[in-house]
């Protein structure tokens, strides 16, 4: 049973793209430790030879004919955008300068 360090939580928050403050990190380390200890109970269940279940219903691929159907207009699709330009989502820079 592994426990999470403060650095681990900071790393996970980075992977999840959440900029946690120091106070949030301090608090979360303790809370996650308690939760993890509790959910580790799954490792005690009699799971040997059991096939994992990812979904409640037996599903096969669902397809539809490849035909054009009504959809949102560009204006509707952009209606909630924090910023838009030339009928496109405007985003902050995605590359590092120089």
């Amino acid at each position: 049973m592994s426990s999470l360090s403060r650095d681990d939580v900071a790393h996970l928050a980075g992977l999840a793209r959440i900029e946690l403050s120091d106070a949030e990190l301090d608090r979360m380390v303790g809370e996650l430790g308690v939760i993890l200890e509790s959910v580790a109970k799954v490792q005690q269940a009699p799971t040997e030879g059991v096939a994992p279940m990812s979904h409640p219903m037996p599903l096969t691929n669902v397809t539809r004919p490849d035909v054009v159907r009504p959809s949102l207009t560009a204006e509707e699709a952009l209606s909630g955008a924090p910023e838009s330009e030339q009928q496109r989502f405007a985003v902050p820079r995605i590359l590092t300068e120089d």
Partner: peptide, 12 residues
């Protein structure tokens, strides 16, 4: 250890 085990418990 975690997600995989949980999915097996789900089947049980």
């Amino acid at each position: 250890a975690y997600y995989g085990s949980a999915q097996k418990v789900r089947a049980l």
